[in-house]
Design a protein around this nucleic acid. Structure first.
Length: 699
RNA sequence: GAUCGCUUGGCUCAGCUGGUUAGAGCGUCUCGUUUACAUCGAGAAGGUCGGGGGUUCGAAUCCCUCAGCGAUCACCA
């Protein structure tokens, strides 16, 4: 053994040997331990957040594998609809092109090829980190068999009356050309003008005067005394002199502006709601490109902001602009291109979430799903109680095309499980056109736990579902975990996972959020090359609970590299003093008894901490045992003074077998955390089998 | 406005269902080490556990309150 541990010399080779040995495939009988990996985007390299879940999940998987449980860690990759299309479009624009230069089929094919070109990077990086997942069961979210499952569930939801096509106000991005869900928006604070406009009988305040042409009412608060006698009368839209009714609604804030609100259901979410409640018509004056339409001639074709300027000018000219105030408020922006979103009414496919959410709440209440960190249980419950119907259609090309066909005669929809229908299910007409929309990525990934297991190997679903642990970042609890719960229970009648282990974000050494603009990005592959995968993994688990954000510094990773080297040298010392007979003598002394007792305690504590998902505690226990007890105390005590004649150091009579036994056990305990260095030492000790498939010490 | 958190030595964090002198890593200081490892060892300094109140034989831990900080969601006409 070299005096120093050199990770570069061993890591890739060890991984290949594990892979070749078939160690990653589940074996044995009994209750299985299953983790479905949250699939990283197929076209992106891994970031430090991925490395954290690898560290967490691999520790759990290796631990349970060593305990002899049939252990499956199923890897996969995600097509990440909007994300990927957005990245691809940025690439196109560098070449001076845009997606509008291609038809849908061509664009889809181009993105498919692009993803194929990049796929493999992510897999090789997972291997570098030591992920002991079963590659033979790898799935991509657009694999035909996965798509088939998703279509089947869509059809089932439709047949059960849980899918409807609704006209709703959606957050529409005129640049991306698609609507987004409740969860896919950002917001930004800014200063705007609040215009007070004369509506004849009443003055209203608005930030969007260009939408007055789409007004269908003026609403006031029912609590308002000032306006009480106006309700039921009319107001007059300036510039076009159309009269609209004055209504009362609780959603109106009597304190804001003049206390009177113009109602524009087609271009504002609150107004839409009020419009629905009062059965008001919808008038739209902005088209899908963000240009004015259906307004007086002069504004048609103008962009929204141009029209606003022009309308204000005209209002002022007509003496109908009462006053202008500054207002500081928050506006919704596209989470992709950060431009303004346009609330727009359009037809989208929706999932009725009510019954799905109720069943999920039941599963949580009855502990069929557990949250080791109670705070996340509370958050999940809160979300499930407040979910709104889920818009699952996206106007993009990258993703699963929705299996819905519209009859060109009766205009009714025919839903299938993916196959092209021969005729309309309503009127039997044979000319049908498939909807161009794609599913929201989360609609398909919400089915990931069962869709994967149902399509891997015969019997997998029956054996490994419900899965044991779902581990992912807390940031996607509402968007993903909650939906997997709803769809999993709906599709299979069982929860998709028994334990939801959410992890925190990786932050920089000062606890600041990592971002490209801050320049504090930590590249996991760079860290692995520099310090070793073991050190990075340990650094990601060290000093913080799984559920909390952690501050990661290079010093911390380097500290763990030192630990790997310490373990290496402990092993070097032990193997150099290996006695011929490894049988422990019955007459061991006090020191021997002490270290054996400490090992026993450590084994117990590590096991307990792992079972409770307190990986940081487990890591600390084994670290302290090896360094502070085994190396600093026990080895120092059994070491005999340097022997000049033999030119070597030796150990006290009878200590050899104890040293060997302790090393053997500590390697087993440390292996889930630092798989590479422990496996290499295991080999150096002369073991013929692999440490990865050896057994967990008795505890 | 709603929900969920956080506040422990210079820094980053543990401290599980309340129970001996509150711990770790890094950092700092002193000393040592040709002989497993300088990717080392021995030792030291450093904390009124955010403030206040309460429950208890006993509180970093439970309850109330105040202050500061953060995350997510909603609203913002």
């Amino acid at each position: 053994m070299d005096p120093q541990y050199n990770h570069e010399k061993f890591e890739s080779n060890i991984y290949k040997e594990w892979e070749k040995s078939g160690a990653f495939a589940p074996t044995g009988n009994g209750k299985p331990f299953t983790i479905i990996m949250p699939p990283p985007n197929a076209n992106d390299p891994l970031h430090i957040g991925h490395a954290r879940f690898v560290a967490i999940e691999d520790v759990l998987v290796r631990y349970h594998r060593m305990k002899g449980e049939p252990t499956l860690w199923l890897p996969g990759s995600d097509h990440a609809g909007i994300e990927t299309q957005f990245v691809f479009e940025k690439k196109l624009s560098k070449d001076g092109k845009s997606r509008f230069d291609y038809d849908r089929e061509t664009l889809y094919k181009m993105i498919w090829d692009y993803v194929q070109d990049n796929t493999g990077v992510m897999e090789s990086q997972l291997k570098k980190l030591g992920a002991s997942c079963d590659w033979s069961r790898f799935k991509f979210t657009l694999d035909p068999e996965i798509v088939k499952v998703v279509y089947g569930i869509f059809k089932k939801l439709y047949d059960d009356g849980l899918i409807y096509r609704g006209e709703r106000i959606v957050n529409y991005c005129p640049r991306c050309g698609t609507a987004y869900s409740q969860l896919e928006m950002d917001s930004v604070e800014r200063d705007d003008n609040l215009y007070y406009l004369d509506y004849g009988t009443v003055t209203i305040a608005t930030t969007r005067p260009e939408t007055i042409f789409a007004d269908v009412a003026v609403a006031v608060s029912p609590k308002s005394k000032k306006y009480a006698n106006l309700v039921g009368k009319t107001a007059k839209i300036p510039l076009i002199n159309r009269t609209v009714p004055v209504i009362a609604d609780n959603l109106v804030d009597n304190e804001f502006g003049t206390g009177a609100l113009k109602i524009t259901p087609a271009h504002d979410a609150t107004d839409f709601e009020i419009g629905q409640a009062h059965k008001l018509p919808l008038i739209s004056v902005i088209d899908e490109k963000g240009r004015m339409t259906g307004t007086p001639e002069k504004y048609i074709g103008m962009k929204v902001l141009e029209a606003r300027e022009e309308v204000v000018k005209n209002l002022e000219g007509a003496g109908l602009l009462v006053k202008t105030e500054k207002i500081h408020h928050t506006v919704s922006t596209c989470y992709r291109d950060h431009g303004l979103l346009e609330p727009t009414v359009s037809k989208q496919w929706f999932v009725k979430v009510d019954s799905l959410a109720k069943n999920s709440l039941k599963a949580i209440a009855s502990k069929k799903v557990n949250f080791p960190a109670d705070k996340y249980r509370k958050i999940a419950v809160n979300w499930l109680k407040n979910l709104k119907d889920w818009n699952i259609s996206r106007q993009i090309v990258w993703g699963m095309r929705i299996p819905a066909w519209r009859c060109q005669k009766c205009m009714e929809w025919t839903i299938t499980d993916g196959s092209t229908p021969e005729k309309c299910s309503s009127c039997k007409h044979t000319t049908l056109t498939q909807d161009e929309d794609r599913f929201d990525t989360w609609f398909s990934s919400g089915q990931w736990p069962f869709a994967t297991l149902q399509t891997t190997k015969e019997g997998d679903f029956e054996k490994f579902y419900p899965t044991t642990v779902m581990n992912t970042g807390y940031d996607i609890l509402p968007i993903w975990v909650v939906r997997m719960l709803m769809l999993g229970i709906y599709a299979t009648g069982k929860v998709p996972f028994e334990t939801v282990l959410l992890h925190g974000l990786v932050r920089d050494k000062d606890g600041l959020k990592i971002s490209k603009s801050k320049g504090n990005v930590i590249n996991p592959i760079e860290m692995t090359e520099k310090y070793g995968a073991d050190a990075l993994r340990m650094g990601l688990l060290w000093g913080g609970l799984v559920e909390n954000d952690i501050a990661l510094s290079e010093e911390k990773i380097n500290g763990q590299r030192k630990f790997a080297n310490k373990v290496w040298n402990v092993a070097r010392f032990v193997t150099q003093n290996k006695s011929a007979n490894l049988q422990m003598s019955k007459s061991i002394n006090e020191d021997d008894k002490w270290i054996l007792e400490e090992l026993k305690k450590t084994t117990h504590e590590v096991t307990k901490s792992l079972d409770e998902y307190r990986l940081n505690e487990a890591a600390k226990e084994i670290y302290e045992f090896i360094w502070n007890k085994f190396a600093d105390i026990y080895i120092e005590k059994v070491k005999l003074p340097y022997n000049k004649e033999q030119n070597k150091i030796s150990v006290r009579e009878g200590a050899g077998p104890v040293l060997y036994h302790i090393l053997d056990s500590t390697l087993r305990l440390l292996h889930p955390f630092m798989p590479f260095v422990t496996e290499q030492i295991w080999k150096e000790m002369g073991n013929k089998d692999f440490l990865i498939t050896s057994s967990w010490p008795a505890h």
